[in-house]
Write a protein that binds this DNA or RNA. Structure first.
Lengths: 343, 343
DNA sequence: TTCTCTACTGTGAACGCTCACAGAGCACGG
DNA sequence: CCGTGCTCTGTGAGCGTTCACAGTAGAGAA
């Protein structure tokens, strides 16, 4: 049933062995393996039985050699720092993509292009056709990798809106702007009028879009915009703390803060506590991300949940469509307000 | 220079194109590609020039088809829950392995075998020879996947000691027991005598080994062991909180707690604060893991750092040695005490 | 010279699969 | 009756590489 090599280790059965076992030709086995079209029920049954009996598993290398596809996908991280690995959302994303791909029997290759050298090596690897497509995670504006892959016509889907690119890179993202609107509307509805914000870096989509959403709601609510109420952080806890201190100095009468990330919101809560302000009585605080940290604050953080599970499954769906030759575009997914104690 | 297919998409150059360009045979190009033995300097130079000119990249599928190796490695997670993805150490491990493998030009395939079905599918995939080896991360005792892969003679290295296995699975781990000793000795040196502990689940290596280390030091220091000072958690923050409450009830005179994870230690700190105990004045608290959370507590957590960067690089080193046919065994790496404010 | 050894090179045959094609068998309509 | 179209099947070729082998050239020893 299985052939045995000279070193005693079994050689796995080939399509030939299955064909012989089933009493059909290689071609018929191959057809069964690839969807079973133009195969008689009797032949199909015989082949399936032979596959079970021999324990046959297709040799993907031989298949790839001829089809030109690799039936694998790269998950590419182009980050110089370890930021993404510290981000709990990243885990959900990676996990979600792995699972969604596994459903299609497609393995995920994890690649990290931190340095320039690595970027070159990985770009070569990918453009050589070793993967069928790329799931790109990068917060960088003007990422050269995306451009190169696009130029080489490699199917590509980014997570989040690639900033500052004129090119047509498909992406999947949460609706940052609308999520921000939702949170600020929530603050307005609860009677706040002096609403400050701590933004993310303004060269990231999360930075600009969430700020835009904040301004949308002030405008629609007829609340006067006040630049003293806007501070720019870098998504770190420490920057949240210092931004909040700065805001309190510039506008001591603020009664709410919309913070563009939960991590920064932690810092904001610390600063407010240090300043003797009670949350939410004196100052309401709204975060963004619904990270696990949002549960650990006191009071627990009211925040905006991004649908990471859906983002990952959509990324995979769009990428597979693109690999299949379809023209794909962008997917924007709705966010959700999670009410807890802080606002 | 590059051939063009009917659909306008360039066909990548093959070894044949390189050979023609360099004026040598396929064999010579292949030899240059695989180490350059038995190749004249002139030929080698010509081949390298031709490779640069054509932009040739080896087709790994064709190579794999004949060599039987795939030049790729699986990073296999056999966890029903998402525990690992919530663990920041896991990120460092995954990142470290990816990078270490990238140094050898070996891509990492991430696979998650949560359900029984997935385990079967993935085991099939791996035993079919689609990867050269497996980096296994699993907290489960009696993991059937490890046994099956071992039986199929797939090179395999586990992260952490596989519990309850009689088999000879190579693994790389931090010295949990000695790390626990180090922490408890530190507590003893600072004058504590009623030292409690919150352990991890006792079906995990981290649970049993760290508890053993705790007992070692009590014994060597002549401190009477007291079962009222031992509580078993599940590595979650909440369990740390409830265990600490329980310990305070059973042994109100405790003056230190050694907690088997930083996450649980966060819970312990909360419970102590709620009980009005000052840290470290009334009660010293020692954690384990040196997770980022350890910096966010007040006071900052004294903890034990596991050398995750070295663990990942050692896992890769051992796996590659095993793939190369060497007999490999176990690697135990030292931990490090990180002193902060809590003890 | 001749023989041997070493360094180097080229060639055919595989690896296991899919694809294109040819051909068989059958049913149907003209 | 043939021709046409359908479903189903087998066969040869070839994907791009490595491997084993055969063969050449030059150096050194006999």
């Amino acid at each position: 049933m299985s052939r045995t090599g000279s070193n005693g280790r079994r050689k796995p059965p080939t399509i030939h062995d299955v064909a012989r076992e089933a009493g059909v030709s290689r071609g018929t086995v191959s057809r069964v393996l690839n969807g079973g079209h133009y195969v008689s029920p009797a032949a199909e049954e015989a082949v399936n039985a032979a596959i079970r009996k021999t324990g046959y598993v297709v040799n993907r290398h031989a298949r790839s050699l001829i089809t030109g596809r690799s039936d694998s996908v790269a998950f590419l991280l182009t980050e110089p720092q370890e930021r993404f690995f510290e981000d709990p959302n990243f885990n959900v994303l990676l996990r979600g993509c792995t699972q969604a791909l596994a459903g299609h029997d497609i393995p995920l290759l994890l690649m990290i292009a931190g340095t320039k050298d690595e970027r070159r090596r990985i770009t070569r690897y990918i453009t050589a056709g070793h993967v069928d497509g790329v799931l790109l995670v990068s917060s960088h504006s003007g990422d050269p990798v995306a451009e190169q892959l696009r130029a080489a016509r490699v199917p590509l889907v980014a997570c989040g809106k690639p900033l500052g690119q004129s090119s047509r890179v498909s992406y999947v993202a949460a609706d940052d702007r609308d999520g921000a609107r939702e949170m600020v509307r929530h603050l307005v509805r609860s009677g706040r009028r002096r609403i400050a914000t701590v933004t993310g870096p303004l060269d990231t989509p999360g930075g600009t879009e969430r700020l835009a959403g904040y301004r949308d709601v002030l405008a629609e609510s007829g609340i006067e915009a006040d630049e003293r109420l806007v501070a720019t952080g870098d998504y770190s806890r420490a920057s949240g703390e210092s931004c909040a201190a700065e805001l309190l100095r510039r506008a001591p009468d603020l009664d709410a803060v919309f913070v563009a990330s939960d991590l920064m919101a932690q810092g904001v809560l610390s600063a407010l506590r240090d300043a003797g302000r009670r949350v939410p009585d004196d100052v309401a605080v709204g975060g963004f991300d619904d990270s696990p940290a949002a549960l650990d604050t006191r009071p627990a953080l009211t925040t905006i949940r991004q649908p990471w599970d859906r983002i990952s499954s959509e990324m995979v769906r769009v990428l597979l469509a693109q690999i299949g030759g379809e023209d794909t575009s962008t997917v924007i997914l709705p966010t959700e307000l999670v009410r807890r104690g802080s606002a």
